[in-house]
Design a binder for these strands. Sequence first.
DNA 1: AATTTCTCCTGCAAGC
DNA 2: TGCTTGCAGGAGAAAT
Length: 298
Amino acid sequence: MPELPEVEHVRRTLKPLLVGAVVTNVQLHRRDIVRTNGRVRPEHLLQGATVADVVRHGKDLAITANDGRTVGVHLGMSGWLSWLGHGSQNKRDEIKTDHVHCIWTIEGRRGDGLLRFRDPRRFGGLWVYSTLKAWRDEKLAGRGPDALDVTAEHLIEALTNSHRPIKAALLDQAVLAGVGNIYADESLHAARIHPATSAHRISQSPELAHELCAQLRQILREAIRAGGSTIRTYRGVNGDSGSYVQWHKVYGRAGEPCVRCSNALRSMQLAQRTTVFCPQCQVRMRASKRQSRAAARS
DNA sequence: AATTTCTCCTGCAAGC
DNA sequence: TGCTTGCAGGAGAAAT
């Protein structure tokens, strides 16, 4: 389940391998993994191009060429970009050849290799654009700011008058981009906020908004440093597992004692997601009786 | 209009 | 052992 830290780890690994390299061949094994309408030619998927950059916003990735051609990549739930170079250590990749939908042949300064897009569940996909700007304008349309750059002021502004649970708001890519189930739960626990707390309550308290923002950004930075979180299937470009799972305080730990207060962590369904939290030290802020009556009247 | 639920998909694990 | 069932969830569409 690649979220911002996993996608950023992929980007950082991929960038030095691809920038300045030439895409000499493209094999598309499944037409429908490219989500753009119309005919797909190898040139659309960068055949013949020299890679200029690998960029990211939230969970979205883009490989862009010197002439502007850009391929957007979203890993969805089970997407995996892997590098198979000369003398590659990527043994796992050599075994898993099923569900490989696209293979790019790369000739680069760091050596030649194959870049593969594998996605068993196909929640992910590829998008083609003629410019990087088109990717930003179309694919990123409606996305909130990248979670690494989000400010408390933005959260306050975006959550004013929002009455859904704060957890649902954090998962909404229009509010901020890059947070999924793992890092939503982890940041709410770190900030001692109950996941069912109404979002506008956060925006009413600058202190809480700043705390949530600071915890979220710190957790994301630490997770990037650890190479992300490997739950089941996620692997880095070279087949490496993300080690941030060992730092998870709540995700996947229902029933275990809270590291802060030793109370048993609980699990609940929220925004159609399994949500793990500590009922003891994650305080739910409820509306006062007077506010509830006022809300009922309006 | 804001918010929730549904839908897509496969692999894995638990239960019988 | 082999079957069925349930669960995992990103994000856009559909429903409320």
